[in-house]
């Protein structure tokens, strides 16, 4: 298989397989999680539970008092790389083109130099977060295989995409194919690892907020 055939494979059958596993996993897990349900709480709610749910969604996007000073790297790094990822994935024009061809919606993108800068910042933030995870005994202790694995899965597509655009290490065609392949790996693993928080984060926050509100502890 030469590099062009490799690229055509990842753009064709590879993409088909990856997207299929992704869609399969996402639907399966969403239905499974949201159909679990809870026993009906018969006590009278002490607060408007729904409102507390919405409040918690917003509230947990802000560091609790004192926490920012305790672990600034986690907060700043976390924000930078999440926003960076969103910009790279949703505002780089070739990516928009892909989304458009898959679901039919498109929107304006950013100039590639801007995305390039965001990518460098994102990569740096992810490396700093990894270093922090390794250096801080508590974080290291709390980290399991999935944490290292999902970091790698997320890091590789960003890195290979940047290397491809910059023409570093390997010829563009090969690097582009590797970029698409690593993005496909990421897609496959999203539903089955903690990366699924991309789909569940706000739902679970809402649920926690609602339950706490019901019990009289709006947070």
């Amino acid at each position: 298989m030469n590099e062009m055939q490799f690229l055509t494979w990842v753009r064709g059958p590879g993409l088909d397989i990856a997207l299929s596993l992704f869609v399969l996993g996402v639907l399966w897990r969403l239905i499974e999680i949201y159909s679990l349900g809870r026993k009906k709480d018969l006590s009278a709610p002490r607060h408007k539970p729904g409102a507390s749910g919405w409040h918690t969604i917003a509230r947990r996007s802000v560091p609790p008092e004192g926490m920012f000073k305790t672990s600034p790297v986690s907060y700043v790094g976390g924000y930078v790389f999440h926003i960076g990822l969103a910009i790279i994935i949703f505002l780089f024009i070739p990516h928009i083109k892909l989304i458009e061809s898959l679901v039919g919606v498109s929107w304006p993108g950013l100039p590639s130099q801007v995305v390039d800068l965001v990518t460098v910042v994102t990569l740096a933030a992810m490396i700093v977060l990894l270093a922090d995870r390794i250096m801080k005994p508590t974080k290291r202790y709390l980290s399991g295989f999935q944490d290292w694995f999902t970091w790698t899965l997320t890091f590789l597509p960003v890195l290979t995409g940047w290397l491809a655009v910059q023409h570093l290490l390997l010829p563009y065609t090969t690097m582009l194919a590797l970029h698409i392949l690593t993005a496909e790996l990421l897609l496959v693993f999203i539903p089955f690892t903690k990366l699924f928080h991309a789909f569940t984060v706000f739902g679970s926050r809402w649920f926690n907020g609602a339950v706490n509100g019901h019990k009289g502890v709006p947070v």
């Binding site: 055509t8 753009r11 064709g12 059958p13 993409l15 088909d16 397989i17 997207l19 299929s20 596993l21 869609v23 399969l24 070739p94 990516h95 083109k97 892909l98 061809s101 898959l102 582009l176």
Partner: peptide
């Protein structure tokens, strides 16, 4: 476009 699927997706609906 180079970033678009090279072939029509065959399995996604089934998946």
């Amino acid at each position: 476009a180079l970033s678009m699927p090279a072939d029509p997706l065959k399995m996604t609906a089934g998946a």
